[in-house]
Design a protein around this nucleic acid. Structure first.
Length: 432
RNA sequence: GGUGAGGUGGCCGAGUGGUCGAAGGCGCACGCCUGGAAAGUGUGUAUACGGCAACGUAUCGAGGGUUCAAAUCCCUCCCUCACCGCCA
C-alpha cells in the first residue's frame, strides 16, 4: 500500500510514476473520495464529541443525586435524535473509509528509478551473465525426455492421480530433488546468515492482504473449500513475511543487516490465465518446491539488501555451475507489490534459452504498511515501517530441470554436480 | 469435538456502566542523589486520523446489539490456556 499522504501531497507525480508500470491512477476519483472521507470524518466526529460532552454532564448530575431522567432532560432533550444521526453519519464515514481503503489496496507499488521503461518481458534489461552455456556434440534432449528415458519422471501418472501440471518423480531423481532443498538451505543458513523457519502452508486472508496477493489476485490462488477463508500458499513469502505483521521490532532484534529467514515450502498456484503456456514438463506446475529468502530491514538499508539477497541466490547457481543471467525487470513486468526486481534466468539447453529460476524483490515499505510491520527507530523513538524483501533461493523444480538439461550426457545419463555429492551418497549419475 | 478459565498499553497487571486512554508495577528516557555506579528518588513514556496549534475523535481480541453513556451488560465469531475425548 502506498502512503496516502504521499498521494495527497503530489497525486500527479504518483500517477506519473505509476505510468511506468502501465497503471493509470484516477487522480480525480482519488481526490473526490479523499475529500468525501474527510468531510464524513469531520461530521461524525463533531457529533461524537457533542454526545460525549452531554453524556459526561449527565453522569455528573447523576453523581450529584439527580434522577437519571431529570439529568437527561436538563442536559439536552434531543440526545436521542443525535444518537440516530450519529448512527447514519458514522456508518457513512465507515463506508467512505472502506472505499478509500479498497482503492488504495488496488494501487501497485511505485517502481524504483532503476526500473527500465517497457511493457513486456522483452524490455527487461540484462545486467550480468555468469557461466558459458555448454556445448553438446550430440542432440540435446529436454528434461522431460531425459527424465522419462531413465524411468524416473512421470507426468502421466500424476495426471491420473490429480490432473495436468503435476509431476511424479521416482528413485534417484526424487532424491536429487530432496538433496537440492537441503543443499540450498544449508548454504543460506551456514554461509549467508539466514535463520531457518518452518511455517504453515495454509494462510488466512489477512496474511495474503499483507503481502499483496489479495484482494487483487485471488484467481491465482487455491482457496480451500471450508468456511474459514483459508488459502494454500503460492509462495513462502506469504507466511514468512507475515511473521512481522502487527509487530514492532526492537532495533536490537534487527541485528546488523536486518532479520533473515530461509524457508523451504511447497508452493501452490492455480496458473489461471496461463493455459497452453509451458504445458510440457516441470516448468509451470500447480505444485512445486521453493527455498525462499525473506528479509526485514531498516529502510535505509533495503537498496543494499536487495543486492546482497540477489547475490545469495546467485551463489546457489554458481555452486551448481549452472550458467545464468541476471535481468532487471521493466515497469511492465515487475510484480504488483515490488519496487525493484532482479530475475535470475538459468540456461536451459532443452529450450535453448534462459528461463526464470529466481525472482528477488525489494518491496520498500509497501508490504510493511499493509501489514503494519514496524521497528522502533532509536533515532526517533517512534515505531516506523520496515522494508521487506524476498527472493527465491531457488525454485527447486526448475533447478532440477536445469541440472537435467545442463548435465546430460551422450548416453542419456545425467551427471550430478559436485556440490551435491555430499547429499547423494555414492550416486554420481542419474540413470547410470 | 466437550467442559472450564481467559484475551486490557513495549511487557506484566488492576479495572463489572458515567470526569477511564485506562490505577499500579516492569522496562525505557531525562533529572536529582553519588567520586563513579547500584540502590533510592522526581518527571516523562501507546497508535491512527483531523487541526498551525490548543485540542478533538477513534482504538481495552473481531464484529454486531442494549444505553444519554460500554474496557465494563447481551449476542456471534476468532484466538490462548487447562482438563477430557479423538488422532499423526
Amino acid at each position: 500500500m502506498l502512503d496516502i499522504k504521499a498521494i495527497r501531497q503530489n497525486p500527479e507525480a504518483v500517477a506519473q510514476a505509476l505510468e511506468k508500470r502501465g497503471f493509470t491512477l484516477d487522480v480525480d476519483a482519488f481526490e473526490q473520495l479523499d475529500a468525501r472521507r474527510k468531510q464524513a470524518d469531520i461530521d461524525s466526529q463533531n457529533l461524537l464529541a457533542e454526545r460525549k460532552r452531554a453524556s459526561k454532564q449527565v453522569g455528573q448530575l447523576i453523581g450529584q443525586g439527580m434522577s437519571v431522567d431529570d439529568a437527561k432532560a436538563q442536559v439536552n432533550e434531543t440526545l436521542e435524535k443525535i444518537a440516530s444521526r450519529i448512527d447514519t453519519l458514522t456508518e457513512e464515514a465507515k463506508q467512505v473509509q472502506a472505499q478509500l481503503e479498497d482503492m488504495l489496496l488496488g494501487i501497485p507499488n511505485i517502481p524504483d528509478e532503476d526500473v527500465p521503461q517497457g511493457s513486456t518481458e522483452a524490455d527487461n534489461r540484462e545486467v550480468a551473465r555468469w557461466g558459458e552455456p555448454g556445448t553438446f556434440d550430440f542432440p540435446v534432449k529436454d528434461h522431460v525426455a531425459l527424465g522419462e528415458a531413465i524411468g524416473q519422471l512421470d507426468s502421466d501418472v500424476a495426471a491420473k492421480i490429480t490432473g495436468s501440471r503435476f509431476t511424479v518423480m521416482y528413485g534417484e531423481l526424487a532424491r536429487l530433488h530432496r538433496a537440492l532443498i537441503q543443499f540450498m538451505l544449508d548454504i543460506h543458513t551456514r554461509e549467508h546468515g539466514y535463520r531457518e523457519i518452518y511455517v504453515p502452508y495454509i494462510v488466512n486472508q489477512d496474511s495474503l492482504r499483507g503481502t499483496g496477493q489479495l484482494p487483487k489476485f485471488e484467481e491465482d490462488l487455491f482457496k480451500l473449500r471450508a468456511d474459514n477463508d483459508y488459502y494454500l500458499i503460492p509462495t513462502a513469502e506469504v507466511p514468512v513475511t507475515n511473521v512481522a505483521r502487527d509487530r514492532i521490532f526492537d532495533d536490537g532484534e534487527l541485528g546488523e543487516e536486518g532479520v533473515r529467514f530461509a524457508c523451504h515450502t511447497p508452493c501452490f498456484r492455480s496458473e489461471a490465465g496461463s493455459y497452453g503456456k509451458d504445458t510440457r514438463g516441470m516448468i509451470r506446475q500447480h505444485q512445486f518446491e521453493k527455498v525462499e529468502l525473506v528479509q526485514l530491514v531498516r529502510p535505509s538499508d533495503s537498496t543494499a539488501a536487495l543486492e546482497r539477497l540477489t547475490g545469495h541466490a546467485e551463489v546457489i547457481l554458481q555452486r551448481l555451475e549452472l550458467p545464468y543471467r541476471k535481468v532487471i525487470l521493466c515497469g511492465g513486468d515487475i510484480g504488483f507489490s515490488a519496487r525493484k526486481t532482479y530475475d535470475l534466468e538459468v540456461w536451459l539447453p532443452g529450450q535453448d534459452t534462459y528461463r526464470e529460476i529466481s525472482s528477488c524483490s525489494n518491496f520498500g515499505d509497501y508490504q510493511a504498511r499493509r501489514m503494519q510491520a514496524r521497528w522502533r527507530n532509536p533515532a526517533t523513538g517512534k515505531p516506523e515501517l520496515l522494508h521487506t524483501l524476498n527472493g527465491s533461493g531457488l525454485a527447486v523444480g526448475r533447478t532440477l530441470v536445469a541440472i537435467l538439461e545442463n548435465y546430460q550426457q551422450a548416453d542419456g545419463t545425467i551427471r550430478i554436480p559436485a556440490a551435491l555429492h555430499p547429499y547423494m551418497g555414492d550416486v554420481t549419475h542419474l540413470g547410470g
